[in-house]
């Protein structure tokens, strides 16, 4: 069988590559799915490790505040300027507050906060768990009668899922404030009118749908970090590869799930 495959004419080689890649991709989807399921079961069943959960809340949430805040304020400001310029072509500059608020809360707040978390947290999780794998700490944990899934994976999944909506709420407020700052300081908008227009236009669902997205993105970020760290092999090089894969796969899954969630929410 193997000899037959090896003897295939060169013209068939691309098909073999495609076949191998497809099988590898399917295998990975399956193993990520099983990993996610095990992680979810660990989140919802005893024993829990509350101290680990609190530690992750601080590491993932609190220490991500500066980067999320800075990203949000500059994005809000740049978005405001672009909408003002674009709106000016239709003599519709006055819609700037509403569009900034909508764009930040429904889309940019959750997506940018998640991407920041992917870069900062998913990479850190993959590196930490990958290094633990390489130095036999995960094996040691098992021999110490402690399930690494419950001790390492479950607290990170839960913390990231809960904390990203909070970070997104902060990003929403700061992002809208960035737009307001540009509008009032540079574009001569009236501050009170800007705030009133924003508040009157925004609906609860605009913010709520963004927070639901953020919870999904948080789960993805932690899942990819844990999965790639946990399956790391090959020493320092393997840990480096796991870190890269965690960030890249988090980002891709964030964008893909954002599209599907947006489609779902706009139909609802």
């Amino acid at each position: 069988m193997t000899a037959g495959v090896a003897a295939l004419p060169a013209v068939f080689k691309p098909f073999r590559v495609i076949g191998h890649s497809t099988l590898a991709a399917l295998r990975m989807v399956g193993s990520v799915g099983v990993f996610a399921l095990r992680g979810l079961i660990s989140v919802f069943t005893l024993p829990w490790f509350p101290q680990q959960f609190l530690r992750q809340l601080v590491a993932i949430g609190f220490f991500s505040l500066p980067v999320v805040g800075l990203t949000a304020i500059f994005t809000g400001a740049a978005l405001g300027l672009n909408i003002y310029t674009g709106g000016g072509r239709f003599n519709a500059e006055q819609v700037m507050p509403q569009i900034v608020a909508l764009g930040i809360t429904r889309e940019l707040g959750p997506v940018l906060a998640a991407l920041m978390l992917a870069g900062r947290v998913s990479a850190a999780i993959a590196a930490e768990i990958g290094a633990m794998r390489a130095t036999e700490q995960i094996d040691a944990m098992r021999t110490l009668s402690t399930d690494p899934f419950r001790y390492l994976v479950a607290p990170r999944l839960l913390a990231a899922t809960l904390v990203l909506p909070l970070l997104t709420l902060v990003a929403d407020i700061i992002g809208v404030a960035g737009g307001w700052l540009v509008a009032v300081r540079i574009l001569d908008f009236n501050s009170t009118v800007y705030i009133r227009n924003t508040a009157n236009f925004l609906q609860l669902w605009d913010v709520g749908s963004g927070l639901i997205k953020a919870a999904v993105f948080g789960f993805i970020v932690a899942l990819m970090g844990c999965y790639h760290g946990y399956s790391a092999n090959g020493g320092a090089r393997g840990v480096g590869r796991a870190t890269t894969h965690a960030v890249v796969s988090s980002a891709i899954l964030i964008f893909a799930s954002d599209y599907f969630l947006t489609t779902l929410f706009t139909r609802a």
Binding site: A131, M132, T135, E136, Q137, D139, A140, M141, T143
Partner: peptide, 11 residues
């Protein structure tokens, strides 16, 4: 009880 090669202590 296990003593691992690199001790495998939790950093």
């Amino acid at each position: 009880g296990v003593l691992f090669q690199g001790a495998a202590l939790f950093d």
